[in-house]
Amino acid sequence: MRVLVVEDEPRMAALLRQGLEEDAYAVDVVSNGLEVLEWVQSAAYDLILLDIMLPGMDGFEVCQTLRRQGYMMPILMLTARDTLTDKVMGLDSGADDYLVKPFAIEEVTARLRALSRRSGPSKTPELVVGDLRLNTATKQASRGNITIPLSAKEYALLETLMHHPHQILSRDQIIEKVWDMDFSSESKLIEVYVHALRKKIDDGHEVKLIQTVRGLGYRISDHG
């Protein structure tokens, strides 16, 4: 899951980044409303966290512009003022949900999960492929009755694959969802993580779920 955090207060932005990265999101932070419009072109963001009070262009306007330009990713508005007008204006400008400051990190991540479910394959926090289950709330994977411990990046990789079961995802598509802007697409890190994930999920099982499609990318599927 790739999230764009738009927040001009630097400490708040840093804390959001930390919290979301710890929750296995790939996070990019921008502080200016105008910059958002450039950033969304360079990566396919799954979610946007949008503060209202921003330099350059305020959150309402950013939201409207994104929707006009055809971007459909869920947008969670962050507002400092708990007034009805702000909420109504936020939702009317195209946001999917709003959160009034101050808020706890769990509330942010829970709302992001809820928002991503709307476009995902499952209406519950659980993603399922064959006998592999991934709980997006607890970040826990299990195959059969065995719980599989995952690191944040391993989880992010598995979640990305399981969001599109039986579909081939290219290296670039995966990188875009799992790593932020600082990550180089030339890196061999993706192979390292796929290898580690395979070991944890497929070792000792007859059906190999994580499949490499030569020249195209990776896929998760329980049929050959």
Binding site: M12, G19, P102, F103
Partner: peptide, 21 residues
């Protein structure tokens, strides 16, 4: 209120982060 809200928001965020794991 803006000046107070900003550090309060940051404070709440830090507290929730600190106990989140």
């Amino acid at each position: 209120s803006h000046e107070l809200r900003t550090p309060l928001g940051v404070l709440k965020m830090q507290l929730s982060l600190a106990r989140s794991r």
